[in-house]
Design a protein around this nucleic acid. Structure first.
Length: 271
DNA sequence: AGTGCGGCCTGTCCGC
DNA sequence: TGCGGACAGGCCGCAC
């Protein structure tokens, strides 16, 4: 379940290995990902140079003069740079082979991830066009949340997990940020005041920012681009701690389902 | 328009 | 021990 910090950590890990290098070929062992892998489009990328590795929301964007390869890690995806003669393991679905013998390998057991392509001539694809601001961008702040939430009756947790409002806030960080800001996750988005939204936006920025800075991860099974160890888990205040005492007040943390997902919160600190 | 839910997947864990 | 079922979760697309 790569969240935004994992995706950014992955971006930083793979970029030095592939930026400025030409693609030698693409191997697709399993095209049935979240969307079908556009094998034909990828096939003609031989000798095309990846000029930059960008990120938008949880999408990794491999820029070339012809267009962009868009990678999403879904829930279980990981990217590693391996030697081209490394045998492919089960769930190693796609390889992008580069000059200089770097092989970018996508593994994704659950296949919720995706490999997409959009042509340089084509308009911005819908999946990117509808996305809200990046959480660490100055354009995202408490006033943005406040303005977009007026009249909304859905839960504030669902609201901040909506990619049209702000991107990159998954289930784990939503729970953590709401705890930090003292907001009950089931509260209607339209009934959260401006000051509390400012606290919430700051919490989102701080928590995501710290996780990115430390190159850390919330994942049990996250592997870095080189497979190197050394990644540690970010300490989480509420996620995964249902039934345990709140670190702030000692009350027992509760769990409840909200929009199909488990949410942990402190019934005393979050109102 | 806003909201909520089903579906896509497989590995892991739980109870019987 | 083996097995079925619940659960995990990002994000699209559909129905109300």
């Amino acid at each position: 379940m790569p969240e935004l910090p994992e995706v950014e950590t992955t971006r930083r890990g793979i970029a030095p290995h592939i930026e400025g290098r030409a693609i030698r070929g693409v191997t697709v062992r399993e095209p049935r990902l979240r969307w079908p892998v556009p094998v034909a489009a990828l096939d003609v990328l031989k000798d095309t140079t990846v000029t930059a590795v960008d990120r938008r929301a949880k999408y990794l964007l491999l820029r070339t003069a012809r267009g962009t390869i868009m990678l999403h890690l879904g829930m279980s995806g990981s990217l590693r740079v391996v030697s081209p003669d490394t045998p492919a393991a089960v769930h190693d679905h796609v390889d992008i082979l580069f000059e200089g013998d770097a092989c970018l390998r996508l593994r994704d057991p659950r296949r919720f991830g995706s490999v997409l392509w959009f042509d340089a001539e084509a308009p911005l694809p819908a999946v990117l066009a509808r996305l809200g601001p990046e959480p660490l961008d100055p354009a995202f702040d408490g006033d943005h949340l406040y303005g977009r939430s007026r009249g909304r009756r859905r839960s504030v947790k669902d609201f901040i997990m909506d990619g049209r409002i702000v991107v990159g806030v998954g289930n784990i960080y939503a729970a953590e940020a709401l705890f930090d800001a003292g907001i009950h996750p089931a509260r209607a988005a339209g009934r959260v005041g401006r000051a509390r939204y400012r606290a919430l936006a700051q919490a989102i920025k701080r928590i995501l920012g710290e996780a990115i800075e430390r190159g850390g991860t919330t994942l049990r099974d996250f592997t870095s681009a080189t497979g190197a160890p050394g990644y540690f888990r970010i300490s989480l205040a509420v996620y995964g701690r249902a039934g345990a005492p709140c670190r702030r007040c000692g009350h027992t943390l509760r769990t409840r389902r909200l929009g199909q997902r488990a949410t942990v919160y402190c019934p005393h600190c979050q109102t």
